[in-house]
Protein backbone atom coordinates (compact mmCIF):
# COMPACT_ATOMS: atom_id res chain seq x y z
CA UNK A 1 0.00 0.00 0.00
CA UNK A 2 2.66 2.50 0.85
CA UNK A 3 5.97 2.82 -0.92
CA UNK A 4 7.46 5.65 -2.94
CA UNK A 5 6.87 9.20 -1.71
CA UNK A 6 4.06 10.99 -3.48
CA UNK A 7 4.79 14.24 -1.65
CA UNK A 8 8.42 15.21 -1.37
CA UNK A 9 8.93 18.76 -0.14
CA UNK A 10 12.31 20.19 0.82
CA UNK A 11 13.03 23.48 2.57
CA UNK A 12 9.73 25.08 1.74
CA UNK A 13 9.59 28.78 2.64
CA UNK A 14 6.64 31.02 2.07
CA UNK A 15 6.88 34.75 2.54
CA UNK A 16 4.14 37.27 1.96
CA UNK A 17 5.03 40.82 0.95
CA UNK A 18 3.27 42.51 3.86
CA UNK A 19 4.53 40.23 6.61
CA UNK A 20 7.88 40.43 8.35
CA UNK A 21 8.24 36.77 9.40
CA UNK A 22 7.89 33.98 6.83
CA UNK A 23 4.72 31.93 7.23
CA UNK A 24 6.61 28.76 6.40
CA UNK A 25 10.22 28.61 7.35
CA UNK A 26 12.03 25.65 5.84
CA UNK A 27 9.46 22.87 5.95
CA UNK A 28 10.65 19.50 4.72
CA UNK A 29 8.20 16.69 4.46
CA UNK A 30 7.66 13.43 2.64
CA UNK A 31 4.41 11.55 2.47
CA UNK A 32 4.34 8.07 1.03
CA UNK A 33 1.70 6.94 -1.37
CA UNK A 34 -1.26 5.55 0.55
CA UNK A 35 -0.52 7.28 3.83
CA UNK A 36 -3.02 9.23 5.90
CA UNK A 37 -1.31 12.17 7.53
CA UNK A 38 -2.73 14.67 10.00
CA UNK A 39 -1.36 18.20 9.89
CA UNK A 40 -1.81 19.85 13.26
CA UNK A 41 -0.79 23.00 15.02
CA UNK A 42 -2.20 26.19 16.53
CA UNK A 43 -3.77 28.88 14.35
CA UNK A 44 -1.16 30.89 12.51
CA UNK A 45 1.27 28.01 12.54
CA UNK A 46 1.22 27.79 8.74
CA UNK A 47 -0.91 24.63 8.30
CA UNK A 48 -3.23 26.14 5.72
CA UNK A 49 -0.41 27.77 3.81
CA UNK A 50 1.40 24.43 3.68
CA UNK A 51 -1.78 22.71 2.53
CA UNK A 52 -2.21 25.34 -0.23
CA UNK A 53 1.32 24.71 -1.45
CA UNK A 54 0.95 20.92 -1.24
CA UNK A 55 -2.34 21.33 -3.17
CA UNK A 56 -0.69 23.46 -5.84
CA UNK A 57 -3.02 26.35 -5.11
CA UNK A 58 0.08 28.41 -4.47
CA UNK A 59 3.79 28.11 -5.08
CA UNK A 60 6.54 28.29 -2.44
CA UNK A 61 8.83 31.33 -2.24
CA UNK A 62 11.82 29.03 -1.85
CA UNK A 63 12.25 25.31 -1.71
CA UNK A 64 11.32 22.40 -3.91
CA UNK A 65 8.15 20.41 -4.08
CA UNK A 66 7.95 17.17 -6.02
CA UNK A 67 4.52 15.71 -6.47
CA UNK A 68 4.58 12.10 -7.65
CA UNK A 69 8.18 12.60 -8.71
CA UNK A 70 7.48 15.72 -10.71
CA UNK A 71 8.80 19.15 -9.70
CA UNK A 72 5.79 21.41 -9.27
CA UNK A 73 7.35 24.25 -7.27
CA UNK A 74 7.85 26.60 -10.19
CA UNK A 75 4.78 26.10 -12.33
CA UNK A 76 2.71 28.80 -14.00
CA UNK A 77 -0.86 29.29 -12.76
CA UNK A 78 -2.13 27.39 -15.79
CA UNK A 79 0.15 24.42 -15.18
CA UNK A 80 -0.78 24.37 -11.48
CA UNK A 81 -4.46 24.24 -12.52
CA UNK A 82 -3.68 21.21 -14.67
CA UNK A 83 -1.91 19.46 -11.79
CA UNK A 84 -4.83 20.21 -9.42
CA UNK A 85 -7.29 18.88 -11.95
CA UNK A 86 -5.50 15.59 -12.54
CA UNK A 87 -3.67 14.80 -9.28
CA UNK A 88 -5.37 16.55 -6.40
CA UNK A 89 -8.74 16.60 -4.71
CA UNK A 90 -9.85 19.08 -2.06
CA UNK A 91 -12.30 18.78 0.81
CA UNK A 92 -12.91 22.03 2.65
CA UNK A 93 -14.29 22.87 6.05
CA UNK A 94 -17.12 24.92 4.54
CA UNK A 95 -17.74 22.45 1.69
CA UNK A 96 -17.33 25.01 -1.11
CA UNK A 97 -20.08 23.70 -3.34
CA UNK A 98 -21.33 25.95 -6.13
CA UNK A 99 -24.70 27.20 -4.87
CA UNK A 100 -26.57 27.41 -8.18
CA UNK A 101 -25.44 23.93 -9.25
CA UNK A 102 -27.28 20.73 -8.36
CA UNK A 103 -25.55 17.90 -6.52
CA UNK A 104 -25.01 16.12 -9.82
CA UNK A 105 -23.60 19.22 -11.49
CA UNK A 106 -21.24 19.90 -8.62
CA UNK A 107 -19.84 16.38 -8.75
CA UNK A 108 -19.44 16.38 -12.54
CA UNK A 109 -17.48 19.64 -12.49
CA UNK A 110 -13.92 18.20 -12.39
CA UNK A 111 -14.85 15.79 -15.19
CA UNK A 112 -16.26 18.69 -17.19
CA UNK A 113 -13.00 20.55 -16.89
CA UNK A 114 -11.11 17.39 -17.88
CA UNK A 115 -13.16 17.28 -21.06
CA UNK A 116 -15.06 14.09 -20.27
CA UNK A 117 -18.22 13.80 -22.39
CA UNK A 118 -21.57 14.53 -20.81
CA UNK A 119 -22.91 11.00 -20.65
CA UNK A 120 -19.78 9.46 -19.22
CA UNK A 121 -19.28 12.14 -16.61
CA UNK A 122 -22.87 11.93 -15.46
CA UNK A 123 -22.66 8.14 -15.22
CA UNK A 124 -19.46 8.39 -13.18
CA UNK A 125 -20.84 11.14 -10.96
CA UNK A 126 -24.05 9.22 -10.28
CA UNK A 127 -21.96 6.23 -9.23
CA UNK A 128 -19.94 8.41 -6.83
CA UNK A 129 -23.03 10.09 -5.41
CA UNK A 130 -24.47 6.66 -4.85
CA UNK A 131 -21.21 5.69 -3.16
CA UNK A 132 -21.60 8.54 -0.64
CA UNK A 133 -25.25 7.60 -0.14
CA UNK A 134 -26.97 10.57 -1.76
CA UNK A 135 -28.53 9.11 -4.90
CA UNK A 136 -31.90 10.45 -3.73
CA UNK A 137 -30.51 14.00 -3.79
CA UNK A 138 -29.18 14.25 -7.35
CA UNK A 139 -31.22 17.29 -8.37
CA UNK A 140 -31.01 19.13 -5.06
CA UNK A 141 -29.13 22.36 -4.55
CA UNK A 142 -26.53 22.58 -1.77
CA UNK A 143 -28.82 24.89 0.24
CA UNK A 144 -31.38 22.08 0.42
CA UNK A 145 -28.92 19.68 2.03
CA UNK A 146 -27.70 19.24 5.61
CA UNK A 147 -24.07 19.94 6.49
CA UNK A 148 -23.14 16.28 6.51
CA UNK A 149 -24.79 15.75 3.14
CA UNK A 150 -22.98 18.73 1.69
CA UNK A 151 -19.65 17.38 2.87
CA UNK A 152 -20.44 14.02 1.28
CA UNK A 153 -21.16 15.80 -2.01
CA UNK A 154 -17.86 17.65 -1.65
CA UNK A 155 -16.07 14.35 -1.06
CA UNK A 156 -17.72 12.80 -4.10
CA UNK A 157 -16.60 15.81 -6.13
CA UNK A 158 -13.05 15.67 -4.74
CA UNK A 159 -12.53 12.12 -5.98
CA UNK A 160 -14.43 12.45 -9.26
CA UNK A 161 -11.22 13.21 -11.18
CA UNK A 162 -9.53 10.17 -9.57
CA UNK A 163 -6.80 12.18 -7.87
CA UNK A 164 -3.84 10.53 -6.19
CA UNK A 165 -3.68 13.06 -3.39
CA UNK A 166 -6.67 14.14 -1.34
CA UNK A 167 -6.29 17.22 0.84
CA UNK A 168 -8.84 17.92 3.54
CA UNK A 169 -8.88 21.19 5.46
CA UNK A 170 -10.77 20.69 8.74
CA UNK A 171 -13.30 18.39 7.00
CA UNK A 172 -15.35 17.92 10.19
CA UNK A 173 -14.89 21.45 11.53
CA UNK A 174 -18.39 22.57 10.59
CA UNK A 175 -20.14 19.36 11.59
CA UNK A 176 -21.44 17.86 14.82
CA UNK A 177 -19.54 14.91 16.30
CA UNK A 178 -21.75 12.17 14.92
CA UNK A 179 -21.85 13.58 11.39
CA UNK A 180 -18.14 14.30 11.64
CA UNK A 181 -17.46 10.67 12.46
CA UNK A 182 -19.58 9.56 9.53
CA UNK A 183 -17.63 11.83 7.22
CA UNK A 184 -14.33 10.49 8.59
CA UNK A 185 -15.50 6.91 8.08
CA UNK A 186 -16.44 7.75 4.54
CA UNK A 187 -13.01 9.26 3.91
CA UNK A 188 -11.42 6.19 5.37
CA UNK A 189 -13.46 3.83 3.20
CA UNK A 190 -12.63 5.82 0.12
CA UNK A 191 -8.98 5.84 1.09
CA UNK A 192 -8.95 2.10 1.33
CA UNK A 193 -10.96 1.48 -1.81
CA UNK A 194 -8.90 3.80 -3.97
CA UNK A 195 -5.43 3.70 -2.42
CA UNK A 196 -5.42 7.47 -2.11
CA UNK A 197 -2.96 9.52 -0.16
CA UNK A 198 -4.75 11.66 2.36
CA UNK A 199 -3.51 14.76 4.16
CA UNK A 200 -5.88 16.23 6.72
CA UNK A 201 -5.50 19.55 8.47
CA UNK A 202 -7.29 19.26 11.80
CA UNK A 203 -7.55 20.48 15.38
CA UNK A 204 -9.57 17.50 16.40
CA UNK A 205 -7.60 14.72 18.19
CA UNK A 206 -10.30 12.21 17.23
CA UNK A 207 -9.75 12.99 13.58
CA UNK A 208 -6.01 12.88 14.09
CA UNK A 209 -6.42 9.45 15.65
CA UNK A 210 -7.69 8.18 12.29
CA UNK A 211 -4.33 8.96 10.74
CA UNK A 212 -1.15 6.96 10.36
CA UNK A 213 0.96 9.88 11.32
CA UNK A 214 0.67 13.35 12.78
CA UNK A 215 2.79 16.29 11.85
CA UNK A 216 2.84 19.29 14.17
CA UNK A 217 3.59 22.75 12.93
CA UNK A 218 4.47 25.80 15.01
CA UNK A 219 5.60 29.19 13.69
CA UNK A 220 6.13 27.82 10.22
CA UNK A 221 8.29 24.90 11.28
CA UNK A 222 7.66 21.21 11.82
CA UNK A 223 8.16 20.53 15.50
CA UNK A 224 7.12 16.90 15.62
CA UNK A 225 6.68 14.54 12.70
CA UNK A 226 6.78 11.23 14.47
CA UNK A 227 5.74 8.27 12.39
CA UNK A 228 3.29 5.88 13.89
CA UNK A 229 0.67 3.49 12.66
CA UNK A 230 -2.87 4.31 13.53
CA UNK A 231 -4.39 1.71 15.76
CA UNK A 232 -6.82 0.50 13.13
CA UNK A 233 -4.59 0.76 10.05
Amino acid sequence: MSGFPIVDAGGICKEFPNMSAPVLDGVSLTVDSGEIVALRGPSGSGKSTLLNILGCLDGPTYGTYRLGGRDVSTLTPRERAWVRLHYIGFVFQSFHLIPDHTVLENVTLPLYYMGVGRQEREARAIELIDRVGLSHRLKHRPAQLSGGERQRVAIARSIAGEPRLLLADEPTGALDTRTGNEVMSLLKEIHEARSLTLIIVTHDPEVAAFCHRQIFLRDGKIVDGEYRHAANA
Binding site: G55, L57, A81, W82, Y113, M114, G161
Partner: peptide, 8 residues
Protein backbone atom coordinates in the same frame (compact mmCIF):
# COMPACT_ATOMS: atom_id res chain seq x y z
CA UNK B 1 -13.89 26.83 -6.11
CA UNK B 2 -13.70 26.19 -9.84
CA UNK B 3 -10.06 27.12 -9.82
CA UNK B 4 -9.28 24.85 -6.85
CA UNK B 5 -11.00 21.97 -8.63
CA UNK B 6 -8.63 22.55 -11.52
CA UNK B 7 -10.33 24.87 -13.99
CA UNK B 8 -7.63 26.65 -15.96
Amino acid sequence: IRSAIGAS
